[in-house]
Structure formats: C-alpha cells, structure tokens
Amino acid sequence: MTGSAGARRRPQRHLPLQIFLGFLVVYFLVPFWWVIVNSSKDAPGLFGGSNTLWFADQVDYFGNLQRLFTYDGGIYGRWILNSTLYAFAGGIGATILSVMAGYGFAKYRFAGRRFSFSVLLGALMVPATALVIPTFMMFSGLGLTNTIWAVILPSLLNPFGVYLMHVYARDAVPDEILDAAKVDGAGELRTFLQVAFPLMRPAVVTVLLLSAVASWNNYFLPLAMLSDNRLFPVTVGLGLWQGIASANNSGSTSLWSLIILGALVSVIPLVIAFFTLQRHWRGGLSVGGLR
C-alpha cells in the first residue's frame, strides 16, 4: 500500500480493496436481481419454485405485464400517471419558488432578510412528517383532502432547495455582471431571467431533480391525505396491494406476482432518469455537501 512515484503514474490496482468493493456491489444489487428474476414467474412458480434467485422454466414477462396493467380496471397505470403528475407539478413548482427565493436572498439586501433566512435555516431541522397531521386538518377544513392538490401543494415547500440555490447564486453569479446588465438598461426581471438564470442552471437542474424525486418517493403525505385509490401514487398503491396480499395469504397468491412486477416497473423510470442525469445529481450534491 505504499505509493512510490512509479505507482502514482500507473493507476493503482489494490486488488483486495476491489474484491471487497465487489462484494458490496453484489449486496446492493441482490434485491434488484431478485425482483427482475421473480417478476417473470407466475404464482405457482413463485411459491413452489425451488430456486428463488434464478429464472423458472417458464419466463412470462408479457403475461404478467398484461395482468398488471389490466388488474382492477387498469388501476396500476393510473397510479403511475398520478405519480408522474405529482412529481412534475411538485418538482417544477418547488424549483421555481426555490430559484426565485434563493436568488432574492443572495442578491438583495432587503429589510428582514437576515431574520427570514435564519428562520429558513431553522426550518431545515423541522421534520417533514410533523406537518402531515395539522396540514391534513387544515386541508380538510378547506375541502382539499382527497384531491390532487392535497399532495401537490405541500410538495411545493422545499427549504433545502432554497438554501442550495442561495449558496449557488451567491458564489456563481457575480454582482458585477448583474450591475453591468442593469447599467445597460435591463430591468430587474430581465436581469434575473437572461443573465442570472443561465448561470444558475446546473443548480436549477439539481433542485428540480431532488424535488421531483422527493415527491415521487412521498408516502406518508399521500397515505394520510388520499382515500380514493384512483388518486394514489404508485408508492401508496403498492403498499395497499401488499397489505391485501399479506392479509389473506391463501386467496391472493396471484397478487404477489403483480406486486413484484409492479415494484420493478415503478422503478424503471427512476433508474433511467438516474443514469442519464447522473452528472447533475453529483454536481448539486457536492454543492450541498461541501459548503
């Protein structure tokens, strides 16, 4: 493990470390592998099958997919669409609010700025779940529970996004450029949209990703707010199915293969987004982590 000058020039191999890392990778991938393999099986193959980590004789993805999307009047497809709607509406809304507020905090010395910013920092410590019960009570008074707004409105709140945008705008948008734009006759809004916004774009993408994923992953809030299962996001829907399947084990064995495939299908859009946008994830995380 001693690094000499020669070892530095050649990439170091560290075989034991790489083998150790290999074991960890297997551990992190096992659940995915299990789901991929077992979503190809039918109920008898699932329960009677001898090998749980390998394919059965019959690989039936298409039959299972067809059953998944037609079960209970195609409710699963609705759940996926609902999740998409909640993720986009919540994500885009939260991002717009965060970008504006972060820029405002970073670039304007307005009265009450210091105080409101420290309130914001305090809010980072407020556990999100502590808000669910009182928000439910307030929304139920306004007749908003069991509507899409009950899920979308609370996901507009993203104090961490504001904090991140503040840090980024402060460091990546020089005051001189903004002043120059204003001297050239650009209004405040135009300066923001055409000068500052392009400079903040990497952080904007990150905040958008983080808040969209947060609303896609949300479980406690929609679980509390929604009672009509046609409004459920896919997380709450699969939780519901799992509850049904576990409650009467004998009668609903076929539901288990739907849950397994449902879990796999619901993960695919995220995995694709994750692989194609990974540069942006890391960029933003380093902003949040380093400062």
Partner: peptide
C-alpha cells in the same frame, strides 16, 4: 432593493407561511 428582494422571496414566503408555519402553529 427592499421591494425587489421581497418580490423574489415573497412567493416562497407565502408557501412557507401557509404550509410550514401555519401547520406548526395549528399543531
């Protein structure tokens, strides 16, 4: 400067008051 600052922070501020401060107070 005050006005523009509040214009930028305001929309988030409203959401913050309505969906964080108000629920906390209500709880």
């Amino acid at each position: 400067e005050h006005l523009m600052g509040w214009l930028f922070v305001g929309p988030f501020g409203i959401v913050f008051l309505a969906l964080l401060i108000a629920p906390l107070g209500y709880a």
